[in-house]
Structure formats: structure tokens, C-alpha cells
Design a protein around this nucleic acid. Sequence first.
DNA 1: TATTAAACGATAATTATTATCAAACGTCAA
DNA 2: TTGACGTTTGATAATAATTATCGTTTAATA
Lengths: 140, 140
Amino acid sequence: MQFDADQFRSLCAEHGLAVTHQRQVIYQALMSMHDHPNPEVVYEKVRKRIPSISLATVYKNIKTFVDSGLLREVSLHHGPARLETNLDPHHHLVCIQCKTIVDLDDGDLEPVRLKKKLPRGFSVQRYSVEVIGLCKHCST
Amino acid sequence: MQFDADQFRSLCAEHGLAVTHQRQVIYQALMSMHDHPNPEVVYEKVRKRIPSISLATVYKNIKTFVDSGLLREVSLHHGPARLETNLDPHHHLVCIQCKTIVDLDDGDLEPVRLKKKLPRGFSVQRYSVEVIGLCKHCST
DNA sequence: TATTAAACGATAATTATTATCAAACGTCAA
DNA sequence: TTGACGTTTGATAATAATTATCGTTTAATA
């Protein structure tokens, strides 16, 4: 407890963030959840320890943590749906900045190969590879 | 023109969809856009040919096309953000049904290897592989 | 401990999407 | 062709997810 609090204190110091009770409880909630929660679920969990916390505070701190690199969003594609008519197996090149998506032919990369067994009972439908980076336009 | 209309007619017949002017214009707009548009952008494009079309019609037809397999959403992760605290390079196992995400260690799969050069000026930051399928729970 | 900037809580606003429902349209059999 | 019936459309309300606003409270630090 004391130890974790101190750890969090120095994490915040490193990133120039004020140490608040809400912030610490949100961070600890996130660290304890290994199932990639959405903000609403984090809110519900945090509310058990701080019933009066505001949903906006949870959103704001998540944003702060992501901006500071303490936390990541699983995908660049949350938000509005993105559509495609290319039904052949293929992959994507994605720009972190402008979110532009460019197709990459399936044949343009070596097939994905697993070294380990997947969890029991999971039936694979397809693999999707994203090459993530900055496009020409955004890197200048 | 006549040819495309006939093609669309049989596509609809195959999938049990009524052939409407709106539906055809939306489909042709989508087929002509190779930049993975969102529904709003499709709406703007379609409005040039049918200024009176409703945004809801665009959404409904996109849904219909996706359900019929004529169209795909680029990612399973549109909608609410999903968060993770695992900052080490890793990949994901994703269930198409319940959207559960499970981490896959970077070492659990062979490194992604490109056979072809990427478009000029794109600087790769990382690769993200998604193993997409049905989890144990959802496949029963 | 006083000052100042950062964060909080309440809530309004915005964005993305789905639901509702009456009117118009497409399908198909007579 | 026409008429009955189910589907689709358009207008708009409702919902979900997120961000903005702003007055109050709290943390940092001098």
C-alpha cells in the first residue's frame, strides 16, 4: 500500500503530474484489470473506492495517462467505423497521426506464424497485421 | 453504367436485398473510395448524387452491406476505447463475438517480415498483429 | 501558510450511431 | 399491369461515448 503509493508518487513526478487520490485510484484500478477495459468499466471499478468520483474525471485521467505514456489504447481505430470493400485477405498500414489506412497485400508479408499454442478452444478465423507509424505527409 | 446497374441487381438478388436507387448509389460510392471512409464521408459523397438522402439511410445500408458480407469494417475496435497497461511489445487475440482481448507475447509469434518495400516516406513505429476468431466461450 | 496552477465535479455540448414510425417504393403473383 | 405486402426511406428522437465548460477544491512550492 504505502509502497505502491510511493511508486505512484514518483511516476507522477517523472511525468509532471499532480498526485491526487482520484488519480491514484484510477491508475491502480487500471493496473489491476488485465482484460482491456473501456472507460465506463474503469469508472464502475473506481466508484467502489470513491463513490463520489465523476465520470469526467475518469475520462480526463485516462487521457492524461495515455498522453504521458503510462497507458495505451489497444487500437487506433476506436471512434467512428472505417469501411472497406476489399474482401480479399490483406493487411493495413496505419498512420498514427492522420489515421490514414492503406492496404497491404497478403502476399506482401511473410505469413504470420505462431510459436506457441493459443489458449484452448480459440478458433482462429484470420490474422490481421497493422504496420503502424507515420505516413510521409505527417512526418514532415 | 447499364452494366454496373445489372451487376448490382444480381448482387442484391444473391443476398435477398431490394434494389433501390439509394442503395446502388451508396454501394457505388463505397466501391469508388479506396481510402477506408467513415459513414459521414460516405454520406457526403452520396449527397452529391442524391442531395435529399438521409444520413440514417446511409448508416442503415452500410449495416446491411456489412451483414451481407459485401462490405467490411476495418477493425473490430471501433466504438468505445479499450485500454491496456502492458507497455511491452505484444499482440492480441480478439474474439469477434464478445470482443474479449487477450495479450499474446511478442515472443509467441515469429517476427513480422515484409516481402516488399513500403510506400516511400512511411516510417514504421511498430507492428500489431491481431489473431481474430471465436473464443472458447463464444464458440459454444 | 499563502499563492498559483492543476485537478475535480457537475453538467452541458458534441459526435457517432441506432431506434421509431409514417410515407413511399420494390417485389411478385394473379 | 395492378394490387397486396413486405422493405426501404426520410425525418427525427433517442442513446452512447466523449469532450468542453466553469466554478470550486486541492496540490505544489516558495
